[in-house]
Amino acid sequence: MIAAVLVATLVQSRFIISLLNYSLVYVILALGLQLIVGVTGQLSLGHAAFYGIGAYASAIATTRFGMPWVVGILLAMAFATLGSLLMSLTVRTRGIYFAVATLAFGIIIHLVFVNWVPVTRGTMGILGLERRLWGQWRIDSPQGYFLFLAFVVCAVYVFLARLTDSRFGRALKAIRENELAAQSIGIDVTRYKIKSILIGGATAGLAGSMMAHLTRMVTPEPFGWWKSIVLLIMIVAGGLGSMPGAAVGAFVLTLLSEYFRGYAEYSMLAYGLIIVFFMIYLPEGLAGLWHIIIQKVRWGGRRAVW
Protein backbone atom coordinates (compact mmCIF):
# COMPACT_ATOMS: atom_id res chain seq x y z
CA MET A 1 0.00 0.00 0.00
CA ILE A 2 2.86 2.33 0.86
CA ALA A 3 4.51 1.34 -2.37
CA ALA A 4 1.28 2.24 -4.13
CA VAL A 5 1.26 5.74 -2.62
CA LEU A 6 4.85 6.23 -3.67
CA VAL A 7 4.12 5.07 -7.17
CA ALA A 8 1.11 7.34 -7.41
CA THR A 9 3.06 10.41 -6.38
CA LEU A 10 6.19 9.65 -8.33
CA VAL A 11 4.89 8.35 -11.59
CA GLN A 12 3.46 11.13 -13.69
CA SER A 13 3.17 9.30 -16.98
CA ARG A 14 -0.49 8.74 -17.75
CA PHE A 15 0.42 5.79 -19.91
CA ILE A 16 2.23 3.95 -17.16
CA ILE A 17 -0.45 4.69 -14.58
CA SER A 18 -3.20 3.42 -16.83
CA LEU A 19 -1.07 0.38 -17.57
CA LEU A 20 -0.83 -0.28 -13.85
CA ASN A 21 -4.55 0.27 -13.42
CA TYR A 22 -5.37 -2.34 -16.03
CA SER A 23 -2.98 -4.76 -14.42
CA LEU A 24 -4.51 -4.31 -10.98
CA VAL A 25 -7.99 -5.13 -12.27
CA TYR A 26 -6.61 -8.37 -13.64
CA VAL A 27 -4.95 -9.08 -10.32
CA ILE A 28 -8.40 -9.00 -8.68
CA LEU A 29 -9.78 -11.33 -11.33
CA ALA A 30 -6.90 -13.76 -11.04
CA LEU A 31 -7.08 -13.86 -7.25
CA GLY A 32 -10.75 -14.80 -7.34
CA LEU A 33 -10.19 -17.44 -9.99
CA GLN A 34 -7.28 -18.83 -8.01
CA LEU A 35 -9.63 -19.57 -5.12
CA ILE A 36 -11.85 -21.65 -7.41
CA VAL A 37 -9.26 -23.31 -9.63
CA GLY A 38 -6.02 -23.32 -7.70
CA VAL A 39 -7.30 -23.78 -4.17
CA THR A 40 -10.53 -25.73 -4.59
CA GLY A 41 -9.36 -27.53 -7.73
CA GLN A 42 -12.47 -26.80 -9.79
CA LEU A 43 -11.41 -25.90 -13.32
CA SER A 44 -13.78 -23.02 -14.03
CA LEU A 45 -13.67 -21.68 -17.57
CA GLY A 46 -16.52 -19.24 -17.06
CA HIS A 47 -14.91 -16.59 -14.89
CA ALA A 48 -15.23 -13.81 -17.44
CA ALA A 49 -19.00 -14.10 -17.20
CA PHE A 50 -19.02 -12.72 -13.65
CA TYR A 51 -16.51 -10.09 -14.61
CA GLY A 52 -18.99 -9.01 -17.29
CA ILE A 53 -22.03 -9.24 -15.04
CA GLY A 54 -20.26 -6.97 -12.56
CA ALA A 55 -19.31 -4.48 -15.25
CA TYR A 56 -22.85 -4.30 -16.65
CA ALA A 57 -24.51 -4.14 -13.23
CA SER A 58 -22.30 -1.27 -12.20
CA ALA A 59 -22.64 0.55 -15.52
CA ILE A 60 -26.43 0.24 -15.61
CA ALA A 61 -26.84 1.25 -11.98
CA THR A 62 -24.72 4.37 -12.36
CA THR A 63 -25.74 5.56 -15.83
CA ARG A 64 -29.38 4.59 -16.09
CA PHE A 65 -30.35 4.96 -12.46
CA GLY A 66 -27.84 7.64 -11.49
CA MET A 67 -26.66 5.75 -8.46
CA PRO A 68 -23.28 6.50 -6.91
CA TRP A 69 -20.44 4.20 -7.80
CA VAL A 70 -20.26 2.65 -4.33
CA VAL A 71 -23.76 1.31 -4.88
CA GLY A 72 -22.64 0.21 -8.34
CA ILE A 73 -19.81 -1.78 -6.80
CA LEU A 74 -22.12 -3.43 -4.31
CA LEU A 75 -24.65 -4.27 -7.00
CA ALA A 76 -21.86 -5.58 -9.22
CA MET A 77 -20.80 -7.98 -6.51
CA ALA A 78 -24.36 -8.92 -5.67
CA PHE A 79 -25.31 -9.74 -9.26
CA ALA A 80 -22.04 -11.55 -9.90
CA THR A 81 -22.73 -13.63 -6.81
CA LEU A 82 -26.20 -14.41 -8.11
CA GLY A 83 -24.69 -15.40 -11.44
CA SER A 84 -22.20 -17.69 -9.74
CA LEU A 85 -25.01 -19.20 -7.72
CA LEU A 86 -26.56 -20.16 -11.05
CA MET A 87 -23.27 -21.56 -12.30
CA SER A 88 -22.68 -23.40 -9.05
CA LEU A 89 -25.53 -25.71 -10.04
CA THR A 90 -22.82 -27.35 -12.11
CA VAL A 91 -20.72 -28.41 -9.09
CA ARG A 92 -22.47 -31.72 -9.26
CA THR A 93 -20.43 -32.40 -12.36
CA ARG A 94 -16.89 -33.63 -11.92
CA GLY A 95 -13.52 -32.78 -13.34
CA ILE A 96 -13.53 -32.13 -17.03
CA TYR A 97 -17.33 -31.99 -17.16
CA PHE A 98 -17.27 -29.07 -14.77
CA ALA A 99 -14.76 -27.30 -17.01
CA VAL A 100 -16.97 -27.81 -20.05
CA ALA A 101 -20.16 -26.82 -18.24
CA THR A 102 -18.61 -23.58 -17.01
CA LEU A 103 -17.18 -22.83 -20.43
CA ALA A 104 -20.66 -23.28 -21.93
CA PHE A 105 -22.13 -21.16 -19.15
CA GLY A 106 -19.68 -18.37 -19.92
CA ILE A 107 -20.53 -18.48 -23.60
CA ILE A 108 -24.26 -18.28 -22.89
CA ILE A 109 -23.80 -15.25 -20.62
CA HIS A 110 -21.66 -13.60 -23.28
CA LEU A 111 -24.39 -14.22 -25.85
CA VAL A 112 -26.80 -12.51 -23.48
CA PHE A 113 -24.50 -9.47 -23.23
CA VAL A 114 -24.43 -9.22 -27.02
CA ASN A 115 -28.09 -9.91 -27.71
CA TRP A 116 -30.08 -8.49 -24.79
CA VAL A 117 -30.04 -5.07 -26.40
CA PRO A 118 -32.68 -3.31 -24.28
CA VAL A 119 -30.56 -3.81 -21.20
CA THR A 120 -26.97 -4.03 -22.40
CA ARG A 121 -27.28 -1.97 -25.59
CA GLY A 122 -25.65 -4.90 -27.37
CA THR A 123 -22.42 -4.26 -29.24
CA MET A 124 -23.05 -0.50 -28.99
CA GLY A 125 -22.15 -0.77 -25.35
CA ILE A 126 -22.84 1.58 -22.47
CA LEU A 127 -20.76 4.73 -22.62
CA GLY A 128 -19.99 7.70 -20.41
CA LEU A 129 -19.60 6.06 -17.03
CA GLU A 130 -18.82 8.44 -14.20
CA ARG A 131 -16.58 7.91 -11.23
CA ARG A 132 -18.82 9.55 -8.65
CA LEU A 133 -18.15 7.43 -5.61
CA TRP A 134 -20.68 9.02 -3.25
CA GLY A 135 -22.41 12.40 -3.17
CA GLN A 136 -19.99 14.85 -4.79
CA TRP A 137 -16.95 12.70 -4.07
CA ARG A 138 -15.29 11.68 -7.33
CA ILE A 139 -12.08 10.01 -8.46
CA ASP A 140 -11.13 11.57 -11.75
CA SER A 141 -7.35 11.52 -11.88
CA PRO A 142 -5.58 8.33 -13.00
CA GLN A 143 -3.39 8.57 -9.90
CA GLY A 144 -6.43 8.70 -7.65
CA TYR A 145 -7.92 5.75 -9.46
CA PHE A 146 -4.68 3.90 -9.06
CA LEU A 147 -4.66 4.48 -5.31
CA PHE A 148 -8.25 3.37 -5.00
CA LEU A 149 -7.54 0.22 -7.01
CA ALA A 150 -4.42 -0.53 -5.03
CA PHE A 151 -6.50 -0.32 -1.86
CA VAL A 152 -9.13 -2.66 -3.31
CA VAL A 153 -6.48 -5.12 -4.50
CA CYS A 154 -4.87 -5.18 -1.06
CA ALA A 155 -8.23 -5.79 0.57
CA VAL A 156 -9.06 -8.64 -1.83
CA TYR A 157 -5.59 -10.10 -1.42
CA VAL A 158 -5.69 -10.10 2.36
CA PHE A 159 -9.23 -11.47 2.30
CA LEU A 160 -8.36 -14.38 0.05
CA ALA A 161 -4.91 -15.09 1.48
CA ARG A 162 -6.34 -15.31 4.98
CA LEU A 163 -9.28 -17.34 3.78
CA THR A 164 -6.96 -19.81 2.09
CA ASP A 165 -4.87 -20.12 5.21
CA SER A 166 -7.60 -21.23 7.62
CA ARG A 167 -9.95 -24.05 8.45
CA PHE A 168 -12.07 -22.94 5.51
CA GLY A 169 -9.08 -22.94 3.17
CA ARG A 170 -7.94 -26.35 4.34
CA ALA A 171 -11.37 -27.74 3.53
CA LEU A 172 -11.10 -26.31 0.01
CA LYS A 173 -7.63 -27.74 -0.47
CA ALA A 174 -8.78 -31.09 0.85
CA ILE A 175 -11.46 -31.09 -1.85
CA ARG A 176 -8.84 -30.26 -4.45
CA GLU A 177 -6.53 -33.01 -3.31
CA ASN A 178 -9.03 -35.80 -2.78
CA GLU A 179 -12.80 -35.42 -2.66
CA LEU A 180 -13.47 -38.85 -1.25
CA ALA A 181 -10.98 -38.42 1.58
CA ALA A 182 -12.40 -34.96 2.29
CA GLN A 183 -15.92 -36.36 2.60
CA SER A 184 -14.65 -39.15 4.80
CA ILE A 185 -13.56 -36.69 7.46
CA GLY A 186 -16.90 -34.92 7.42
CA ILE A 187 -16.35 -32.11 4.92
CA ASP A 188 -19.50 -31.18 3.03
CA VAL A 189 -17.84 -31.05 -0.36
CA THR A 190 -20.75 -29.57 -2.31
CA ARG A 191 -21.29 -26.74 0.14
CA TYR A 192 -17.64 -25.71 0.17
CA LYS A 193 -17.37 -25.86 -3.60
CA ILE A 194 -20.37 -23.58 -3.91
CA LYS A 195 -19.01 -21.13 -1.36
CA SER A 196 -15.70 -21.01 -3.17
CA ILE A 197 -17.44 -20.30 -6.47
CA LEU A 198 -19.61 -17.59 -4.92
CA ILE A 199 -16.66 -15.81 -3.35
CA GLY A 200 -14.64 -16.06 -6.54
CA GLY A 201 -17.62 -14.79 -8.52
CA ALA A 202 -18.14 -11.83 -6.19
CA THR A 203 -14.53 -10.72 -6.60
CA ALA A 204 -14.90 -11.00 -10.37
CA GLY A 205 -17.98 -8.75 -10.11
CA LEU A 206 -15.91 -6.27 -8.15
CA ALA A 207 -13.23 -6.35 -10.83
CA GLY A 208 -15.94 -5.80 -13.45
CA SER A 209 -17.07 -2.62 -11.76
CA MET A 210 -13.46 -1.46 -11.47
CA MET A 211 -12.78 -2.04 -15.15
CA ALA A 212 -16.06 -0.45 -16.25
CA HIS A 213 -15.31 2.80 -14.45
CA LEU A 214 -11.67 2.71 -15.44
CA THR A 215 -12.48 2.68 -19.15
CA ARG A 216 -15.77 4.56 -18.59
CA MET A 217 -17.59 2.20 -20.91
CA VAL A 218 -18.84 -1.35 -21.14
CA THR A 219 -19.06 -3.44 -24.30
CA PRO A 220 -19.51 -7.21 -24.53
CA GLU A 221 -16.15 -7.74 -26.21
CA PRO A 222 -13.87 -8.19 -23.15
CA PHE A 223 -16.13 -10.75 -21.50
CA GLY A 224 -15.94 -13.63 -23.97
CA TRP A 225 -14.81 -17.13 -23.18
CA TRP A 226 -11.25 -16.46 -24.31
CA LYS A 227 -10.94 -13.95 -21.45
CA SER A 228 -11.69 -16.77 -19.02
CA ILE A 229 -8.85 -18.69 -20.62
CA VAL A 230 -6.48 -15.75 -20.41
CA LEU A 231 -7.27 -15.52 -16.70
CA LEU A 232 -6.57 -19.20 -16.34
CA ILE A 233 -3.21 -18.67 -18.01
CA MET A 234 -2.36 -15.95 -15.53
CA ILE A 235 -2.90 -18.19 -12.52
CA VAL A 236 -1.16 -21.12 -14.16
CA ALA A 237 1.87 -18.98 -14.90
CA GLY A 238 1.79 -17.61 -11.37
CA GLY A 239 1.36 -21.03 -9.86
CA LEU A 240 -1.88 -22.88 -9.20
CA GLY A 241 -2.95 -22.62 -5.59
CA SER A 242 -0.73 -19.68 -4.72
CA MET A 243 -2.33 -16.29 -4.06
CA PRO A 244 0.92 -14.34 -4.44
CA GLY A 245 1.51 -16.34 -7.61
CA ALA A 246 -1.88 -15.34 -9.01
CA ALA A 247 -1.21 -11.68 -8.24
CA VAL A 248 2.23 -11.70 -9.80
CA GLY A 249 1.14 -13.77 -12.80
CA ALA A 250 -1.77 -11.45 -13.58
CA PHE A 251 0.23 -8.30 -12.99
CA VAL A 252 3.20 -9.28 -15.11
CA LEU A 253 1.23 -10.80 -17.97
CA THR A 254 -1.15 -7.83 -18.21
CA LEU A 255 1.70 -5.37 -18.11
CA LEU A 256 3.45 -7.26 -20.86
CA SER A 257 0.40 -7.61 -23.07
CA GLU A 258 -0.63 -3.97 -22.60
CA TYR A 259 2.90 -2.79 -23.16
CA PHE A 260 3.18 -4.77 -26.38
CA ARG A 261 -0.20 -3.62 -27.51
CA GLY A 262 1.13 -2.88 -30.96
CA TYR A 263 1.60 -6.61 -31.40
CA ALA A 264 -1.86 -7.53 -30.17
CA GLU A 265 -2.23 -10.20 -32.86
CA TYR A 266 0.61 -12.09 -31.29
CA SER A 267 -0.43 -11.71 -27.67
CA MET A 268 -2.96 -14.55 -27.67
CA LEU A 269 -0.49 -16.78 -29.43
CA ALA A 270 2.07 -15.89 -26.79
CA TYR A 271 -0.44 -16.63 -24.03
CA GLY A 272 -1.00 -20.05 -25.53
CA LEU A 273 2.69 -20.76 -25.74
CA ILE A 274 3.17 -19.61 -22.16
CA ILE A 275 0.51 -21.92 -20.77
CA VAL A 276 1.73 -24.98 -22.65
CA PHE A 277 5.31 -24.18 -21.69
CA PHE A 278 4.42 -23.89 -18.01
CA MET A 279 2.39 -27.07 -18.02
CA ILE A 280 5.24 -29.03 -19.52
CA TYR A 281 8.26 -27.54 -17.80
CA LEU A 282 7.02 -25.67 -14.76
CA PRO A 283 3.59 -26.95 -13.71
CA GLU A 284 3.90 -25.19 -10.36
CA GLY A 285 4.32 -21.84 -12.06
CA LEU A 286 6.36 -18.91 -10.84
CA ALA A 287 5.36 -19.70 -7.26
CA GLY A 288 6.96 -23.13 -7.64
CA LEU A 289 10.11 -21.53 -8.96
CA TRP A 290 10.06 -19.11 -6.05
CA HIS A 291 9.71 -21.98 -3.59
CA ILE A 292 12.71 -23.74 -5.03
CA ILE A 293 14.76 -20.58 -4.67
CA ILE A 294 13.52 -19.97 -1.12
CA GLN A 295 14.25 -23.50 -0.06
CA LYS A 296 17.78 -23.11 -1.28
CA VAL A 297 18.11 -20.08 0.93
CA ARG A 298 16.35 -21.16 4.12
CA TRP A 299 14.38 -23.97 5.64
CA GLY A 300 11.03 -24.59 7.29
CA GLY A 301 7.47 -23.49 6.76
CA ARG A 302 5.56 -21.04 8.89
CA ARG A 303 2.06 -19.78 8.79
CA ALA A 304 1.99 -16.55 6.88
CA VAL A 305 1.14 -13.75 9.28
CA TRP A 306 -1.37 -11.48 7.68
Binding site: R170, K173, A174, R176, E177, N178, L180, A181, S184, G241
Partner: peptide
Amino acid sequence: IRTFQIPQPFSGM
Protein backbone atom coordinates in the same frame (compact mmCIF):
# COMPACT_ATOMS: atom_id res chain seq x y z
CA ILE B 1 -14.53 -42.64 10.14
CA ARG B 2 -12.47 -44.79 7.85
CA THR B 3 -9.05 -45.25 6.32
CA PHE B 4 -8.50 -46.51 2.80
CA GLN B 5 -6.87 -49.65 1.53
CA ILE B 6 -5.06 -47.57 -1.06
CA PRO B 7 -3.98 -44.46 0.87
CA GLN B 8 -5.82 -41.33 -0.23
CA PRO B 9 -3.48 -38.59 0.93
CA PHE B 10 -3.96 -34.84 0.52
CA SER B 11 -0.78 -34.94 -1.54
CA GLY B 12 -0.16 -31.22 -1.78
CA MET B 13 -0.53 -30.59 1.95
